[in-house]
Nucleic acid binder design. Structure first.
Lengths: 208, 208
DNA sequence: TTTATGACCGAGCGATCGATCGGTCGGTCG
DNA sequence: CGACCGACCGATCGATCGCTCGGTCATAAA
């Protein structure tokens, strides 16, 4: 009944496992800088310095500052969607099980990829229209994944919320916000946060 | 003379009423610009232009770009706290009534003062340490107001959440996030949004 | 050995940044 | 009238911005 399972290395549950980021050093430098000072608050010299490169050295790998941001945000949204899809695919057939899986995936992602997730969500307005549109499309797809589950849960009588779409967005919102306050050295472990927020999220949609 | 009457003590429900903003034109210009492009993405020339002033004309009223941001954020947090306190003071004695009042206050504020609220929450990192600390203190006070209510609600048996503090933060999060998507021309009226989100927030804390 | 290529950098481009200088102008007061 | 003041502005400051030019250097295929 409960979805609590042990971490199994291998195929099953790989969406739960987060290794160190494999970002190229220039992207990693841009990510740290953007997370700290924001896109417009970060100079290309700052990124180059953090990457151990000169400014032309940085431009050898990326054609513009904007390209750094776009590369970061598309990478992060693709990974989130991929992991969520995997979690959903491995979950049981009931809306409750699928809800738990996707919410846990959302939570873990926003803890273990918190900087990427934070930058992506706060720097949307710094993206050029085309890139922003592509990003929003991926984000909406992620949202609709949860929307559909909640809707089906209500139809199946597993969730009792009167406002499925709003509740679904509220759940996404609280999961995304984890990226803005979670810190690995904080008092709560990722597993404990998953436990708590999963319980809260279930209440939010009125799970029986 | 000042004809302000929406903050007169004893005016029951005045925390629900939002007139047009009374911000000086320079601050209003800065607010619009910051909301659209962010603090670092906005030049002092852009603010001056929107305010119908020259750059030195703008500096005649505010000593620095940072002062514009600080003035905006302190104003907005003070108004939020003032309205929330008023809502709480006028609410009934039970945690449920107080919860509803404060959540409704939070929701209305983040709809009718959405630009101010949005800028304040997104541009925290652009504030100098001292100003940021003062802002965070006010924000924490607002958070603790709801924390206390939820805690008392659990103690009184009115709320059933196992994680009062986390649920309280989740509720605040979803209310604050309203500022980032609400639009007056949207399909939902403020009253309808209050109705829906109040129901969702009650579920989140496990209200009976 | 020659040529080609990817990885990088010192120097500097034009533009724009936040901020300031020395004013002008209309009003108020004695 | 003349002294003063708040409100405002054209011009410009030094610094920094994103970005680029013309290279060097190590490696490797031809």
């Amino acid at each position: 009944m409960d979805t609590r399972e042990d971490l199994v290395p291998g195929d099953t549950g790989s969406w739960r496992h987060y290794g160190a980021t494999t970002l190229p050093k220039a992207l990693a430098a841009a990510l740290d800088a953007f997370a700290e000072r924001g896109y417009d608050g970060t100079s290309i010299r700052e990124v180059a310095s953090r990457a151990g490169l000169s400014v032309p050295g940085l431009y050898h790998h990326y054609p513009s500052k904007q390209a750094l941001l776009v590369s970061l945000t598309t990478t992060v949204m693709r990974e989130l969607l991929e992991r969520s899809r995997q979690a959903l695919a491995e979950a049981g057939p009931t809306p409750s099980e699928q809800f738990d899986a996707v919410v846990e995936s959302l939570l873990r992602f926003h803890m273990f990829r918190r900087n990427q997730a934070f930058v992506a969500s706060t720097e949307m307005r710094s993206m050029e229209p085309a890139s922003r549109a592509a990003f929003v499309a991926l984000r909406d797809e992620q949202q609709r994944m949860l929307d559909r589950i909640v809707e089906e849960g209500v139809a199946a009588g597993e969730f009792s919320t009167r406002y499925p779409e709003d509740a679904s967005r509220a759940v996404t919102t609280m999961c995304v916000a984890v990226a803005s306050w979670y810190h690995p050295d904080g008092p709560l472990s990722p597993d404990e946060i998953v436990t708590r927020y999963l319980a809260i999220a279930r209440c939010t949609v009125g799970a029986r």
